[in-house]
Design a protein around this nucleic acid. Structure first.
Length: 456
DNA sequence: GCCCTAATCCCAC
DNA sequence: GTGGGATTAGGGC
């Protein structure tokens, strides 16, 4: 009987050439999932060298089993994923943290990996992400100063980042005591006073992706970019890149953690490990996703794409990053089998969930909101502005609107993070704009002053 | 030896 | 069957 070639993906404790009985033969109960050990789902090869009884560690070894047969389930040889495989896996993880069977099969075939390996990778990736998210949350809740907007709003309200930070967002416990700040806390915190319900995506037009990508660099959000722009460059380019975007005291650096900038040593490792570690240190882009209920994702007819809790991926990027290669998320498609729901608890810390990173759309929303604000104010409809000195006090909101229209590019100012958290221009959120507005509506004699303050 | 992480074990649903 | 949490262990440095 011809013996199949041994499969190198399996551990062979007894590499003797004698074939063990065929797995279809009767197996005693202590054999658990023998096919796990025998069948390589990638190659389809049965490993005839390998039939061992599985005895849980906790169970006592039956007397009639020799020591040579009692062992922990042997491991497969550790797979070393290629950088391309990692990139692909990361990209799919970006699109959704859970895979359907069809997606799994497709991905495993595409990457020439076993389905078990793909599943394990996603499982471990989710685990890693959760740990880091917990660390970030702890850090951001404990240490990060609130943006002026959040600070303002928190004076009169107890919603927003402060209160939601205190509630656990996951079934697991937060175990770490320190870590890098959440990027949400860094750049998206401005929703505190303008997000009535922290469990819903913020109605405050924010541009999280634009903010974060500009501040941290495209690579932090796009593994493809990372591959294309860093893999071929010496490590110092990588670091220089980040210094460019975090030229001042970076919260991560200030925290003295290993997370950001990535440790020099690891960055100087070879590309594969470099890439793996990079993603381990930059998990921020998945903050809004969480585990769906049970197995409801795949067939749940209520799994509506239109549900605002569902992940939204950026479909367009600021012009400064328009040359990069972020793929339109298939998670955007109702036919996608990778998109997943966002549960309310996913809105960690500040209720900016939803991943609504469509910058131009948000910008338009912001402008529309301000337009209404100014118009109402100018028309005397702003009850809050009873001091007789409203914006557009010339009797029409038109000048302010015109200024805004003329200052479209100036909105970009608010998409930049300031290292100075006391800077009232800290964030481009409605809170910030309202902060500026409130500060100046009592003092500005005309629209121009306000517009100058806000948009220049 | 340390770190990262693939793989395993265990339990819950 | 699949998930998460805990753990083990391979491999690079």
């Amino acid at each position: 009987m011809a013996q199949p070639p041994p499969d190198q993906n399996f551990y062979h404790p007894h590499p003797h050439p004698h074939a063990h009985p065929h797995p279809q033969l009767q197996l005693p109960p202590q054999f658990r999932n023998p096919f796990d050990l025998l069948f390589d789902e990638r190659t389809g090869v049965i490993n005839y060298n390998y039939i061992r009884p599985y005895i849980p560690n906790q169970l006592q070894k039956p007397d009639d089993l020799s020591d040579s047969l009692v062992m922990r389930r042997p491991r497969r040889t550790r797979t070393t994923f290629t950088s391309a495989q990692i990139a692909e896996l990361e990209q799919h993880f970006l699109q959704g943290r859970y895979l359907t069977s069809s997606r799994l099969a497709e991905l495993s075939a595409k990457l020439a990996l076993g389905t078990a390996q793909v599943k394990i990778w996603f499982k471990n990736r989710r685990r890693r992400h959760k740990i880091q998210a917990d660390q970030q949350k702890d850090y951001s809740c404990d240490s990060m100063p609130l943006s002026p907007a959040a600070s303002n709003s928190s004076k009169s309200e107890t919603n927003g980042s402060a209160s939601s930070c205190g509630s656990s967002s996951s079934s697991g416990s937060s175990t770490s005591s320190s870590g890098p700040p959440s990027l949400q806390s860094l750049s998206l915190n401005g929703s505190g006073g303008s997000t009535p319900n922290p469990l819903t995506p913020s109605p405050t037009p924010t541009t999280p992706t634009a903010n974060l990508m500009e501040h941290y660099g495209e690579a932090a959000f796009n593994p493809y970019y990372y591959n294309n722009h860093h893999a071929s460059h010496p490590p110092h380019h990588h670091q220089a890149h980040h210094h460019t975007h975090a030229s001042l005291t970076h919260p991560y650096a200030a925290a003295g953690t290993q997370y950001y900038p990535p440790p020099t040593g690891s960055l100087q490792h070879h590309q594969h490990q470099h890439q793996q570690q990079y993603h381990a240190h930059h998990p921020h882009q998945f903050q809004m996703q969480h585990k769906p209920q049970a197995s409801s994702i795949k067939e749940d007819p209520e799994y509506s794409y239109d549900n605002p809790y569902y992940m939204r991926m950026p479909t367009s990027l600021p012009e400064t990053t328009a040359t990069t290669t972020v793929q339109p998320s298939t998670a955007m498609s109702p036919n996608s089998d990778v998109y997943e729901p966002l549960t309310p608890k996913n809105d960690e810390c500040n209720g900016v969930g939803g991943g609504n990173g469509d910058a131009p759309e948000d910008l338009n929303e912001t402008k529309t909101t301000i337009r209404e604000l100014v118009t109402n104010n100018a028309n005397g409809n702003d009850d809050a502005c009873s001091n007789g000195n409203p914006i557009g006090s010339e009797g029409s909101g038109t000048p302010a609107i015109n200024i805004m229209e003329d200052c479209t590019g100036a909105f970009a100012k608010f998409q930049k993070m300031s290292p100075d958290t006391t800077d009232p221009n800290y964030q481009c959120t409605m809170d910030t704009l309202m902060h500026a507005y409130n500060n100046h509506r009592n003092t500005s004699a005309n629209t121009q002053q306000f517009a100058t303050y806000c948009f220049n």
